[in-house]
Design a protein around this nucleic acid. Structure first.
Ligand SMILES: [Mn+2]
Ligand SMILES: [Mn+2]
Ligand SMILES: [Mn+2]
Ligand SMILES: [Mn+2]
Lengths: 221, 221
DNA sequence: GAGTAAATTTAGGCTAGTCTAAAAATTTGT
DNA sequence: ACAAATTTTTAGACTAGCCTAAATTTACTC
């Protein structure tokens, strides 16, 4: 059974929205906003995906991926992240330039290709944004990190990823001198607007809004 | 102006059919057979391509690419051949395994990507089947070779490419011990069915049908 | 629990790309 | 030059994906 380009995008959207809310059912409007399609179009597609047993769909009650649907979604994510790794590691793109290209490349159909690409890259565990790359069986070996905005003060932290992939945000980070692997320490936490003052690599200090801090992922060292 | 996935395939088909017959007009039926679509569908598409000024179309009289159409077709061919080179050189695919994957990859849209891929591969002049790769300006720096079937006896020849890209034919060549770069000499030429007896690398001899010989490209050494 | 607001689905319509069957134009053969 | 064969176009229809507007269901508020 073949899954179309568009169907793959819907499955991927449902997968990530579901993850975002503890694997809960995903609503028609959530998908509609995420894909920038109208809700009526989403309903049409949900029926199709349901007919193909890729989702469990109860009208008015939201959707969940079936095992088959989840497997398909994870495979697309695997391809997306492997191609991003390729573009940055091999072709020397910047990390803020690769997402849109990977959105196209993730739909190339060839199991041989994914496997050979994975090997060529040395079986990377993470993509250039710190997102874990699932293996061929769909397993994630790396745990997702916590948001900088929810880290405790005084801990020594290391930047492991971002949750906003927009070119705008990634460029802002680069300009602020923050990259993957940098050490961070929270110097001040402002209760009023939840902004933070952080020290980067024990060198320069920096103010971050709550919005920015919530999109930076860190691990405690 | 955007050219769709399907339109790109039509332009590519028109380009290679036209080349095949000395840049003559290409007929609806030729395109129809090449793309395995019905003639009525081709007519529809020719109208669209004509509206977009990508072809010159006179009903019942065949089509020719405009400069714009030719440029677009050559760009797709450039991408196809660069990706084939990538798949063989970097990912270690066999030369008979890459065509179908490249048919998908040739439609990825990003000028930055093509340029960086070209550099990564060391600006190759030919793809794994010996087909010349046009540069970013659409220029072919390498000349196409002649068919083995039309070569003169007694010349020392070297295999530079193939004109049938099917996995079946490429496997047949591999099994017969013929690869790019091999030396060939025509030992006998049979006038009746135009079959050939050739010597490969001054070692083993081999019988080739006219059909096979017409799909092997050679240069005189 | 009735009434309003919000979310979702249904109804009907559009475009791109495909098809079959029929009509029209061109080419071929004598 | 004219009839037959071939090629090409037109007419009408289908599917995938999308849209707007209207109807329906569910959720929220008093
Ligand atoms: Mn991405
Ligand atoms: Mn990523
Ligand atoms: Mn090819
Ligand atoms: Mn090739």
């Amino acid at each position: 059974m073949l899954v179309s380009y568009t169907e793959e995008n819907y499955l991927k959207a449902i997968y990530s929205l579901s993850r975002l809310y503890n694997d809960a059912e995903v609503s028609t409007n959530q998908i509609s906003e995420h894909l920038k399609n109208k809700a009526a179009s989403v309903t049409d597609m949900l029926k199709k995906l349901s007919d193909k047993k890729l989702i469990d769909y109860k009208p008015y009650k939201g959707v969940k991926l079936t095992d088959k649907g989840k497997k398909t979604a994870i495979k697309v994510i695997r391809k997306h992240r492997l191609w991003e790794a390729f573009l940055v590691e091999k072709l020397k793109f910047k990390w803020d330039e690769v997402h849109e290209i990977a959105e196209q490349m993730e739909h190339i159909q060839s199991d041989e290709l994914i496997q050979k690409l994975d090997n060529f890259l040395g079986n990377p565990k993470c993509d250039p944004h710190g997102d874990p790359i699932p293996d061929a069986a769909g397993k994630f070996s790396v745990q997702r990190s916590i948001a900088l905005s929810s880290a405790k003060q005084k801990n020594s932290l290391v930047v492991t990823g971002v949750s906003d992939h927009s070119s705008e945000f990634l460029k802002y980070l680069s300009n602020s001198g923050i990259s993957l692997g940098d050490n961070l320490k929270i110097e001040e936490s402002n209760g009023y607007d939840r902004s933070l003052k952080i020290k980067v690599n024990n060198k320069h200090s920096l103010f971050l809004s709550h919005k920015a801090a919530s999109n930076i992922l860190v691990e405690i060292k």
